[in-house]
């Protein structure tokens, strides 16, 4: 039992369960999953579906944070990816063309690779602090997305594109399947190749890694490219789900949620050891929080307050200084007894 509670992910998982269970009191059918037209429906499926963009972004963010960095530009990359895809699809003579949609998706992801390279080079070659380096793309990227769409919401009516965010395959939402695939690829790539351990080495101790002959530069650039690609896929899912590109709303403030998810998942902001599973759990937890506030009936906006409380509690519980203060209090308080 203690081994269980001591597990890194015990508390986030427990909070997630409590959140989900608390929904039942307000929505008795919360846990029921129905089959309709061969598709699964239900609140749990909704939680999963709505969490997909955040899970993806958090996944990329995890790897960047593991290298000792941070990526603030993910939201803007989401917006750019959505804008590029919708523009290209909008220009298609026939929006039903699967080939045309695939080309648009490929273009969006290709552009994300370039943006990731930009971030990675600024951080690892020019040597700019990650927060600052990615701030540039965060600000300018949003403008580029708006420039692409001329500030309009670009609507598309392309059934093949719609599949990405709203389609079903084998009774499951396609977006959930895509995310599952990306998670699987990320896990295999980091844990089956040597990528994971080398990234952790670089993040944990740049000096020791250099002396061990690790080429940190390439690894760091790859991490930022991965984060950008994840963000682009998230942007495609988001944009497909609403069948439009909204350069203002897409990925707005998602970088903060993603960083939060990573921290909840037990990856330290200082870099080193990372947990992809933890970040996925953290992202689902944040989405569940949104859904729960909705079902409980408190205004959706108050989730921000919840998040503030969660961040404070988590950070304080991770802060050695805070623990020292609390423990000392407890000890002095317990002394007379």
């Amino acid at each position: 039992m203690t081994a269980l509670t001591r597990h890194r992910l015990f508390w986030p998982a427990a909070v997630l369960v409590v959140l989900l269970v608390s929904n039942v009191f307000f929505a008795p059918r919360f846990f029921s999953i129905t089959v309709h037209d061969g598709h699964l429906y239900g609140s749990l499926i909704d939680v999963l579906r709505s969490s997909t963009p955040l899970v993806l972004v958090a996944l990329g963010m995890t790897v960047v944070i593991a290298t000792g960095g941070i990526d603030l530009s993910v939201g803007s990359v989401m917006a750019i990816a959505g804008a590029v895809a919708c523009l290209m699809i909008g220009d298609l003579p026939n929006q039903d063309s699967v080939g045309g949609v695939l080309l648009a998706v490929a273009a969006a992801i290709g552009l994300a690779v370039v943006l990731g390279l930009w971030n990675g080079v600024l951080v690892s070659v020019i040597g700019i602090q990650p927060i600052i380096a990615t701030l540039i793309l965060m600000v300018a990227g949003r403008g580029i997305a708006q420039l692409l769409t001329s500030g309009q919401i670009i609507n598309v009516s392309s059934p093949p594109f719609r599949v990405i965010g709203a389609g079903y395959f084998l009774a499951l939402p396609v977006s959930v399947l895509i995310v599952a695939a990306v998670v699987a690829i990320a896990v295999v790539l980091t844990r089956r190749s040597a990528l994971g351990v080398l990234v952790e080495a670089v993040g944990a101790s740049p000096t020791a890694s250099r002396l061990a002959g690790i080429r940190a530069r390439g690894l760091t650039i790859m991490a930022y490219v991965f984060a950008a690609v994840c963000a682009a896929v998230a942007g495609l899912i988001f944009s497909s789900n609403v069948a439009s590109a909204d350069s203002n709303a897409a990925g707005n403030l998602i970088e903060l949620d993603a960083i939060l998810a990573v921290v909840i998942g037990g990856t330290a902001l200082t870099g080193g050891r990372f947990s992809l599973a933890g970040s996925v759990l953290g992202a689902v937890l944040i989405s569940a929080l949104d859904i729960t506030t909705y079902t409980i009936g408190i205004p959706a906006e108050t989730t921000l307050l919840f998040k503030a409380v969660v961040v404070v509690v988590l950070c304080l519980s991770q802060s050695a200084a805070f623990r020292a203060v609390v423990l000392r209090r407890r000890r002095t308080a317990g002394a007379p007894a």
Binding site: A204, S205, L211, R273
Partner: peptide, 9 residues
């Protein structure tokens, strides 16, 4: 400790 082993690994 700082230039040799990586403590977390």
């Amino acid at each position: 400790r700082t230039e040799g082993v990586i403590g977390d690994l």
